[in-house]
Simulated assay, not measured.
Amino acid sequence: MTISTQSAAGGPPPELDLDEAPTYASAPIEEQRLHRKRQLAAAFRIFARYGYDEGVAGHITARDPELTDHFWVNPYSVHFSRIKVSDLLLIDAQGRIAHGTRRTNKAAFWIHSSIHEARPDVVAVAHAHTIHGRAWAALDRPLDPIVQESCAFWRDHVLFDEYRGLVLERDEGERIAARLGSARAAILRHHGLLTVGRTVEEAAWWFIAMNRACEMQLLAEAAGTPRIMTDEEAEVAHRQFGSANMARNNFQLLSSLIFEEEPDVLD
C-alpha cells in the first residue's frame, strides 16, 4: 500500500483546530497522517533542544490514522536534531518496516507496540533517557504533588518497579503496558520516563512536563523537605494543569518555533 505524505491537494494541509478536534477525525486521512508525522518530527527536534538525546536511545511513536495497528517512529541511529518527516518509519504489528528504508529500533517496537495494542485511545507514546527522569527513576518512587505543574500527574502516573535491561522481548513490553493501565505516564525504575497521549502534541508535552517535575522535586528535596499539597489542592491543579488542551497548546508554542527556525524538518 502506498502511504501518502502530502495533502490531497498536493500542498501543505490546512490548519487543524486542536481545540475542537484533537483527534482530527474530520480531516481526510492523508491530512491526518501528514499532521501527525510533522508533529512527530518536530517533537524530536524539540527533544534535541532540551538535551533529551542519549546516543541511539529514545523514541516517540504516532499511530497511523488509517492502519491503526501500525505506528510511525524515528529510525535507529539518527540524531533527534536531524529527524525529518521523510526519515520516519512506518512499523506494522509484527515489527516489519511497511514504509521507509532505514533500520528500526527493537526496543522501540516492543515497548511501543505493546502500549499501542493495549491502549486504543493512545495515539502517541514518548520515551527518552533524560538526566532528571533517570535520576528520579533511581529513587523507586512516584512523584509527589509539590508544585502545580507536577499535579498534571497526580494519581495519573505509575511506577514500573522492574528492571531487566534493554526491553528486547514482547513479554516485558506487555508488562509495562499492563502496569501503565489507563494512566498518562510511567516511571520505569532504573530506566527513565514514558508518557502517552491522544495526540503527538499531548504525549510529547507530558514528557517535557514530567521531566521538569522530576527536576523540581530533586531540587526541592536537595534544599529541604517540600510541602506536599493536600488532596483538594492537588485535585484543582490536576484539573487545570492536566488539561489535554493545555498540553496541545503548550506543545504548539514549541513546534511553531521549530517549523520557523528549522524548516528542513518538514522535508
Rank of each mutant, 00 (worst) to 15 (best):
I91M: 13
A108Q: 04
E117N: 12
A124L: 11
D92V: 05
S86A: 13
R102F: 03
L67Y: 11
I111G: 00
D87T: 14
L67T: 06
N74M: 11
S114Q: 05
H112W: 03
V78K: 14
F109E: 01
A124M: 09
Q94V: 09
R82H: 15
N105V: 00
D53A: 12
N74F: 12
L89A: 14
W110T: 00
L90Y: 01
E66V: 04
R63G: 07
G95M: 10
H79Y: 13
A126N: 11
D64A: 08
T68V: 15
E117W: 07
A62D: 10
S77L: 09
D64N: 10
H127L: 02
T68I: 15
L88Q: 09
A108G: 11
T101D: 15
I111Y: 02
G55M: 04
H127P: 00
S86T: 13
I83D: 02
N74A: 13
S113G: 00
W136K: 02
A118Q: 06
D92I: 10
A128F: 02
L89D: 01
V123G: 02
Y76T: 02
Q94E: 10
P65G: 08
F80R: 03
A128C: 02
L89Q: 03
P65N: 11
D53S: 14
D69T: 15
A135F: 13
T130I: 04
